[in-house]
Design a protein around this nucleic acid. Structure first.
Lengths: 234, 234
DNA sequence: CCACATCGTCATGGTTTTGTAATGTTTCCT
DNA sequence: AGGAAACATTACAAAACCATGACGATGTGG
């Protein structure tokens, strides 16, 4: 997961640094303000992946800020977590119905805040599951392989074999293991078959004679090369 | 918004009916069980849009059910809300980190539960009511398809199949997946059927022989072409 | 109750893929 | 070097895969 950026608006200095410390420890980038003024501008400038918002601020209302975020076409998709001491039913409802994505009542456990933050980052995995190795790209969801941007036509078995090898680059697999993984456990296939498929793959995705994506490891099996082969120099 | 379906697993009869009443009032479809046994099967059958899960059940553990849902490839995207009396820090963290999307501690306000449910349905609206690919347009709200501006008459099944494929252009789906998505989970349909429908779709929406909107991916299934087919040359 | 549209299945045939056996080549050991 | 084992290649027949046309069942509106 790339580094996620979080904006924190919280006037209580102690709580501010506590959260800052913990977000930092978790590997998030944090920018923030202890005042509600200019919060929208801060978000427009920083384009965070998530906003943590105290509702009761001395100079402005967190609810208004949330409303502002939701009204802004560029920001409206950003998840907002409210943080507040108000625990009454209507307060909560108003917050949630106003467009907040979560609502945490003070005092709270920091680890819970972190866990709830992570929920919003979960599930939005990259649309395409892409395996890369130098010029070679394998797109799982499209069942497609490209070499230097150009599509390479592979058969189903070839694709699955390459996918398996690429998903664990450098690891050497015996023919036995490859048969289990690619052909299935109830296979009825000779292990020489693997050789043939490696050959077919090589003929399709090999660039030069010198460097090979698939490495034969005599006496053991095959592995996907980590030393990324290159066409020219790099 | 179409009718959303919610599965509720809660052993306390009073709470069960309270929630049932309120979900019903809000216009949600609810199915549920007062036992944890068979919860996964229930979800597989019903394919709900959200699951509300009590953690402490007399016959099984809500955490395990959640784990089961997250482990099932067809169910793992479904939001899970935990409902529980356990308020300790570790309980909450475990619940959230296990894959739950929300965690509500009893006793709670029903309106808050409703508000939190709605959060999960918000924003996941298909942003595009209108799917486009070159000359081909699919209007979800009107159940209408146009090719070069001219309306094409599709049957219900043809429409759903095309809609599903177009909604994730480029992604390859197995016949199995297409049957699940288009025909439903309680299907009693051969997977050869998909071939026939693809054929029928092609006959109706295909422009030329060279370029095709629906791509056959031998050994895997079908996908909607991203390379937008063109009437003329490129 | 008939005409018509839709649905799902089946059988067919052409094409691609697959697995194996046979043969050639490299590597390694003595 | 000689030979054996491991790997690379080639060629080919069997199997799998998909497109297609036809058909019966079911449902629906007139």
């Amino acid at each position: 997961m790339e580094m996620k950026k979080i904006v924190l608006i919280e006037d209580d200095a102690d709580l501010y640094s506590l959260i800052q410390y913990n977000l930092d420890k978790e590997g998030f980038t944090m920018v923030g303000s202890q005042s509600g003024k200019g919060a929208i501008e801060l978000c427009r400038r920083e384009r965070p992946d998530l906003v943590i918002l105290d509702i009761m601020l001395p100079d402005s209302d967190g609810l208004d800020i949330c409303k502002g975020i939701r009204a802004h076409p560029e920001l409206q998709h950003i998840p907002v977590i409210f943080l507040t001491a108000r625990a009454s039913e209507t307060d909560r409802i108003v917050g949630l119905e106003l467009g907040a994505n979560d609502y945490i009542v003070k005092p709270f456990f920091v680890r819970e805040l972190i866990a709830r933050i992570k929920i919003h980052f979960r599930g939005q995995q990259p649309a395409t599951k892409l395996l890369k190795a130098g010029e070679l790209e394998l797109d799982r969801s499209r069942c497609q392989v490209r070499l230097s941007g150009q599509e390479i036509a592979l058969t189903a078995t070839e694709f699955r074999l390459l996918e398996f090898l690429m998903s664990r680059p450098g690891v050497v697999f015996s023919r036995e293991q490859l048969l289990d993984a690619v052909w299935g456990h109830d296979r009825a296939v000779t292990d020489r078959t693997v050789d043939v498929y490696v050959l077919r793959l090589r003929q399709k995705i090999e660039i030069s004679e010198a460097s090979s994506f698939i490495r034969s490891v005599r006496g053991f099996g095959y592995s996907f090369n980590i030393e990324v082969p290159v066409t020219q120099a790099q």
